[in-house]
Design a protein around this nucleic acid. Structure first.
Lengths: 140, 140
DNA sequence: CCAGTAAATTAGAATCGTTCTAAAATATTG
DNA sequence: CAATATTTTAGAACGATTCTAATTTACTGG
């Protein structure tokens, strides 16, 4: 994808999400959506932006991540109590979590089957089923 | 269960976990393990202790929760990025998470079947599969 | 039972990710 | 272009958690 296409794509994403295409959002959208699916935290994305010479504050990165998530462009993945992780893959899928590295890896939804879930508590309905497969490195 | 039995049980748990049975740990163990399974945060447990006139600092509650978890008496459940939740049910099971209330509810492991998990990433092995069924209240 | 020691508790400070605030900058609309 | 609404920002504030260093408590061997 060339620069022009990337630019057009970012504009389009933001417009569709009813978000003003500001310089900062454009740059973040391009970092997030230019290549294949990604997992980022506010801090990794902020660092990336700075490395790419995009002047943007951490507060704006948080802002953008939340707006993008609300607009359905991102999905938040909860893996540990410390930092929030955002996934550009918003389709139904699950995750491996490599504990030592704090790294996420997608598991296609197609492969995993969850059966036998009991009915949700009275007065509630299921919004999402999150599966985190926690893995640890083995020696050898 | 009467007081004496509870006391004996708490001592036993702590001894088995190679933790000195201090006044604070005894009190916390009794709060945690006296009745059926529970979900607590450091703060809810601290509040409970104070309400029961147990003088214990928040730092000690954090300490105890982590020691108990390391000893296998508790299991940590990650549901949101904000607070850590600890579950006295350490057997294989899953959770409903009621978003509005931040409340957890156990799902017996027996009912849920997860099939079709791909092999873990090279060099890793599966430590645990966490399933969080996120539910939201419905009107009516 | 006591002295010596190792471990645990504590208040308060420090830390870390995240959110808030209020002012300045930018985008949109007419 | 002016008027308005939205966004960005630095820095302060926040809340959960961890750390620090001093005090207290539990254990061990005599």
């Amino acid at each position: 994808m060339n620069d022009h296409r990337r630019y057009a794509r970012a504009i389009e994403l933001l417009r569709a999400a009813k978000l003003r295409p500001t310089r900062q959002r454009m740059a973040l959208a391009r970092l997030l959506f230019a290549t294949g699916h990604r997992h980022v935290t506010a801090e990794t994305l902020h660092d990336e932006a700075l490395a790419a010479h995009v002047r943007v504050s951490l507060a704006t990165v948080y802002n953008a991540l939340h707006r993008f998530t609300a607009a359905g462009l991102l999905r938040e993945v909860v893996v540990d109590g410390q930092r929030s992780c955002f996934d550009t893959n918003t389709t139904d899928h699950q995750h491996f979590f490599i504990e030592e590295e704090g790294q996420l890896q997608d598991i296609p939804a197609a492969s995993v089957q969850i059966t036998g879930l009991p009915a949700p508590p009275p007065g509630t309905s299921i919004r999402r089923v999150d599966v985190i497969v926690r893995v640890a490195k083995v020696s050898g």
